[in-house]
Simulated assay, not measured.
Amino acid sequence: MKRVAILISGGGSNMMALVASMTGDHPARPVLVASNDPGAAGLGKAAALGIPVAAVDHRAFGGNRGGFEAALLGPLLDARPDIICLAGFMRILTPGFVDRFAGRMLNIHPSLLPLYPGLNTHARALAAGDVQAGASVHLVTSALDDGPILGQARVPVHPGDTPETLAARVLAAEHRLYPAVLRRFAAGQTDRVDL
């Protein structure tokens, strides 16, 4: 059984989708939900499900990413994860941190990578006149929103869409995609999934 740590920064909707999927014959189980924000609503949701939680407030480190990551490593290493899932974790990780978990860290991003890495993905897709948007799950590398893509889910862009309406549709697709990719990845399958 693979041990999964999930890193979040907010409400944790993708975390909840991952946790809900890790039951029955699933080859993984959640062992930690950690956040860079002690006020992240997802921490309470995870704790209510009996999952250990940890918070390391990045603001206390005044922009010292290395110091923040060293503090985060404590609870993370204590949990002994086989896989780390970034699920709305809004901190850029240093190459040293990423390298420590190379090949074992997944991220979900709300665009069809390599399109629109970084922020404001939905507004950028609309501004470009795209007819499709979506989400990608990829292995994390030291380059932002880069790394081998393990799965993508596509959603149509509708006339009159706003960044908010498109974001809601993409988020629903994320909640299907991330659990599907994690199940396969935990079972040792790294071929791409397209939903």
Score class of each variant (00 low, 15 high):
residue 116 Y to Q: 00
residue 138 H to D: 12
residue 148 P to M: 09
residue 88 G to I: 07
residue 66 G to C: 03
residue 190 T to P: 00
residue 148 P to Q: 15
residue 170 V to I: 15
residue 71 A to V: 04
residue 61 F to V: 01
residue 48 A to P: 13
residue 40 A to W: 13
residue 98 V to D: 08
residue 85 C to D: 05
residue 100 R to D: 00
residue 139 L to N: 07
residue 188 G to W: 06
residue 102 A to G: 04
residue 135 A to C: 15
residue 125 A to K: 07
residue 100 R to C: 00
residue 18 L to C: 15
residue 17 A to M: 06
residue 64 N to Y: 03
residue 94 T to Y: 06
residue 113 L to Q: 01
residue 178 Y to S: 09
residue 69 E to M: 04
residue 133 A to I: 06
residue 131 V to P: 06
residue 26 H to W: 13
residue 39 G to N: 14
residue 22 M to P: 08
residue 69 E to A: 08
residue 2 K to F: 02
residue 95 P to H: 02
residue 193 V to M: 06
residue 83 I to T: 08
residue 6 I to Y: 05
residue 121 T to S: 13
residue 9 S to P: 00
residue 178 Y to C: 11
residue 118 G to A: 10
residue 160 G to I: 00
residue 133 A to K: 08
residue 174 E to W: 04
residue 129 G to A: 03
residue 56 V to D: 07
residue 184 R to P: 03
residue 147 G to V: 08
residue 71 A to N: 03
residue 57 D to S: 14
residue 194 D to G: 03
residue 93 L to V: 01
residue 122 H to N: 12
residue 32 L to E: 06
residue 144 L to K: 02
residue 19 V to Y: 13
residue 55 A to L: 10
residue 100 R to G: 02
residue 120 N to F: 05
residue 88 G to S: 06
residue 69 E to N: 05
residue 140 V to M: 05
residue 173 A to E: 12
residue 139 L to M: 14
residue 150 L to E: 10
residue 161 D to S: 05
residue 119 L to N: 08
residue 90 M to P: 03
residue 133 A to M: 03
residue 137 V to W: 03
residue 165 T to G: 11
residue 169 R to E: 10
residue 100 R to Q: 09
residue 63 G to K: 00
residue 136 S to Q: 09
residue 98 V to L: 10
residue 177 L to V: 06
residue 138 H to S: 11
residue 43 L to P: 00
